[in-house]
């Protein structure tokens, strides 16, 4: 099977769908780049700020790969209105932090059309945004805000942790008739993995059990799923058998797979890069406490960022992020 990066996998998914369906468009700031510019390589100068949509304008033209002004609310609103009337926009919002500029269009508009209009509306919208720390990008370019979208009824929230999942989940996101928030971890764009050339779908709400184990269940999202896997490798050498679950989508959430695992292991650690309050870590801990309390052999542990903005200084950001060491410590704590 060919090896591709997370970035290439997402690009390939959008490319497949643009070729398959004329209604799929890409819209956002610098999704091509160079609009109105005279540089020798102005066309496709950016291809997205991190190059995820590179090459699409050459295949599909500016009619379907639309560079916009820096105007997040209007991008989101335009994409929502276009989705409501029959297009399938993939809106690139760059950093998830910038969604703060246009939240009204997401949670009051796109998320609610179907319900408010009595089931008559379809809003096949994909909102792409980068999440995550580790780039020394400080408080307004490093957040991991998936819980804010997960709590809004009407939205689906996807956070792929590897290139294979990224492609299959993106194709599902574009074909899906509901608004999807597709969160790409910026530290994973160069991560490579096996990705088939042909299109395929990964359904939403189906967790991946990325490692079987008997002693402890770890639930972890996006890049934290990778760190959980590394922690599990270390712990295996110490004789602790860890099961790792990557839910892949936070809305819908595959609760059954998590509960079945806890039923087997009796112990749970949830790892999430977002701050702790009202987080997925808190949510999953609550779900397990409510539905699998009698299967638990001890208290649940969570490993999250602290309740602070993301710091700039490397020395601070390194301790802000949930690390492999912190995950190992949490597992050992629940094993006691």
């Amino acid at each position: 099977m060919p090896t591709k990066s997370y970035r290439e996998a997402i690009n390939e998914a959008i490319d497949h769908e643009m070729a398959r369906d004329e209604n799929v468009i890409v819209i956002g700031e610098d999704v091509s780049g160079g609009a109105g510019c005279e540089g020798p390589d102005a066309e496709d100068a950016y291809g997205g700020v991190l190059g995820v949509t590179k090459g699409l304008v050459g295949k599909y033209g500016r009619r379907r790969v639309i560079d916009t002004p820096i105007t997040e609310s209007a991008i989101m609103g335009t994409a929502a209105g276009a989705a409501l009337t029959g297009l399938r926009p993939v809106a690139e919002m760059m950093f998830v932090d910038f969604l703060g500029v246009c939240f009204d269009m997401i949670y009051n508009q796109a998320a609610k059309f179907r319900y408010m209009f009595g089931g008559t509306a379809r809003t096949p919208l994909v909102v792409r945004a980068m999440i995550g720390g580790g780039f020394r990008a400080a408080a307004q370019h490093s957040q991991t805000l998936h819980p804010m979208f997960t709590m809004v009824p009407g939205l689906k929230v996807v956070m792929p942790s590897n290139p294979y999942d990224a492609k299959g989940l993106m194709i599902q996101a574009i074909r899906d008739d509901d608004p999807v928030i597709f969160l790409e971890h910026k530290a994973m764009y160069d991560m490579t993995g096996e990705v088939p050339d042909e299109p395929y779908i990964i359904p939403f709400g189906e967790a991946a059990v990325t490692r079987d184990g008997d002693d402890v269940t770890i639930v972890a999202f996006s890049m934290m799923a990778k760190r959980a896997a590394k922690a599990a490798d270390v712990l295996a050498k110490e004789g602790i058998s860890v099961e790792v679950i990557d839910p892949r989508t936070t809305s819908p959430l595959d609760v059954d797979t998590i509960l079945e695992s806890v039923e087997k292991t009796g112990r749970l650690v949830v790892v999430d890069e977002s701050p702790p309050r009202c987080s997925m870590a808190a949510d999953i801990a609550a779900l397990v406490a409510e539905h699998a309390f009698h299967d638990l052999k001890g208290p649940i542990a969570t490993v999250t960022a602290p309740h602070t903005p993301v710091p700039f200084s490397p020395s601070l950001e390194d301790i802000y992020m949930p690390s492999v060491d912190k995950i190992i410590t949490a597992v050992k704590k629940v094993m006691k």
Partner: peptide
Amino acid sequence: MLGANGIVGGTAPLAVGAALTIKTR
């Protein structure tokens, strides 16, 4: 009729999006 809206000004970009559908198609 794409809907009344409870958010003042909320319809403006949505209408632009509907126009984008018309133009793209």
